[in-house]
Amino acid sequence: MIRKTIVIVNKLGMHARPATLIVKAASKYRSDFRIIKEDMEINGKSIMGVMTLAAEYGSELELVADGVDEEFLIKEIAELFVSKFGEE
């Protein structure tokens, strides 16, 4: 199991489009993927789950991947956050 903490750096926060990108990226992998924000923990492969986090600009998330390809999953997802999902 790997854990990684990231901060939302795109201005609009995790709205529908970034949420879709995360879910689609994560769904390619076999590992389980969870995202934790404060006291909320959701399945990172569920679009409703990811949007329910309502993670705004500046908020902190913990990514948790567990499975055979966990490293690759975390790497790709973290890159998405860093690239600001191609936004500002």
């Binding site: 201005k11 609009l12 926060g13 995790m14 709205h15 529908a16 949007m51 309502a54 993670a55 705004e56 600009y57 500046g58 908020s59």
Partner: peptide, 24 residues
């Protein structure tokens, strides 16, 4: 429904970002 939900989410995100900024 998709529009309504995502608009609500966007509003919420903006409000929370503003609050966070103010508290910092």
């Amino acid at each position: 429904a998709a529009k309504v939900y995502t608009q609500k989410l966007q509003k919420d995100l903006q409000k929370k970002a503003k609050l966070r900024h103010a508290s910092i």
